[in-house]
Design a protein around this nucleic acid. Structure first.
Length: 361
DNA sequence: GTGATGCGACCGTCTCGAGT
DNA sequence: ACTCGAGACGGTCGCATCAC
């Protein structure tokens, strides 16, 4: 848990080592090869003790052949760009890095997707995160409001003082410190619900901190919640839509990480998170208005039961997903508005917080 | 058969421009 | 003046295809 991320000096060193290996191989007329962990659900395992998706060791490699010469060159050039940034102590956005490649002649990236794929590969290869390579996302993370003071260098930011607005999580959160007496962190999927809670100062009544993810949480949002929860020993409760996407993509990713970015799960997941709702049982119990499951939803449920190491580990989740399959229904967070606009604050959250038995792991 | 890669599908939010 | 759709952005995943 306390393991620290590598600093940029170490990143520089590793880039040099890999580059010199490649150079030596070429001088000896041997085919150079760069290896990196394979990132997919098939290459991770889950256990409660560790608390996040761990890599199980499958590797993929990038070799230098006639067919792969371009992506091989791009990999080295991007590492070089990272090295340059580390040396001058600067950062650039992912997209800026893509445009820098336009100076690489024939090796330039043809699309931004292509650039980001290679960037992810380099990141996995070095076992660091993108920010330490000097590449930062253009957009910020989620929104925060409530009983929290964020200490960002000389600035002390009081998250109760944003009125109807909120504190916006920066792209790098490693240097932040926290001061709080709140009892828990409530993480919600949509900005709409966040605004409802914030406008009614729910965090004041419940003595908590609220965070909006806005769909799948960005890395900085995940890291922010993790650091806050670790530092202040706070429980984290998650509130998403009652659908396969909310369970398997949003909650699962926040708590234990993803297959796609398996190499950084250790730092970017929140193992202490608990799932408050909306559970399939809630949909029945609170008589929520529902939508029928689409074919893709059913497929996603089946797939989750079959392939997701996290679901396979937790029978409770397996049962919940099967229950949803049988109900053939899903419900959004906003569905509580059918009872009354503030039902979610006055009834639902109060009842759920008192009944840990209704949560999911 | 296995792994690398490209492509499409999905989600939430935001912005911009075309059309009404 | 307003609505609506497309595309950017940051994420997730599965599937088809191709090379080895």
């Amino acid at each position: 848990m306390a393991k620290k991320a590598k600093d940029r000096k170490q990143v520089l060193g590793e880039i040099k080592n890999i580059a010199s290996d490649v150079y030596k191989k070429i001088m000896k007329k041997k085919a150079p090869e760069i290896t990196m962990p394979l990132r997919s659900l098939s290459n991770v395992k889950y256990s409660d003790k560790v608390g996040f998706f761990e890599l199980i060791g499958k590797m993929k490699s990038r070799t230098l052949t006639a067919n792969t010469i371009k992506s091989f060159a791009q990999t080295l050039l991007l590492m070089n760009e990272s090295k340059r940034l580390a040396r001058i102590g600067d950062t650039e956005s992912k997209r800026e890095a893509y445009y820098v490649s336009k100076n690489w002649g024939d090796a330039r990236f043809d699309s931004d997707d292509e650039a980001f794929t290679v960037m992810d590969d380099v990141e996995a290869m070095l076992q660091v995160n993108r920010e330490q390579m000097g590449f930062i996302p253009e957009e910020k993370g989620g929104a925060v409001a409530g009983k929290l003071v964020v200490i960002d260098g000389k600035d002390k930011i009081d998250c109760t003082k944003f009125g109807s607005g909120a504190y916006s999580i920066p792209s790098s959160v490693e240097h932040l410190e926290f001061k709080t007496n709140a009892k828990f962190v409530l993480v919600v999927e949509t900005s709409a619900l966040f605004q409802r809670l914030n406008n009614h100062k729910y965090w004041d009544k419940a003595n908590c901190i609220i965070v909006a993810m806005g769909g799948v949480p960005t890395r900085s949002t995940r890291r922010f919640i993790r650091r806050l929860a670790d530092d202040k020993k706070m429980p984290v409760y998650v509130f998403t839509d009652g659908d396969p996407y909310g369970y398997l993509n949003i909650y699962r990713t926040l708590k234990v990480g993803s297959g796609n970015a398996a190499h950084i799960n250790e730092f970017f997941c929140v193992p202490q998170a608990k799932f408050l709702g909306v559970t399939p049982a809630d949909i029945e119990h609170y008589k929520l208005p529902t939508h029928p499951l689409k074919d893709v939803d059913i497929k996603r449920l089946k797939d989750g039961i079959k392939n997701d190491p996290f679901v396979k580990h937790h029978k409770d989740w397996e049962k919940a997903l099967q229950k949803m399959s049988k109900m053939k229904k899903r419900a959004e967070q906003q569905a509580f508005a059918a009872h009354s606009l503030n039902y979610v604050i006055d009834v639902y959250l109060q009842e759920k917080l008192k009944n840990p038995k209704t949560w999911l792991p």
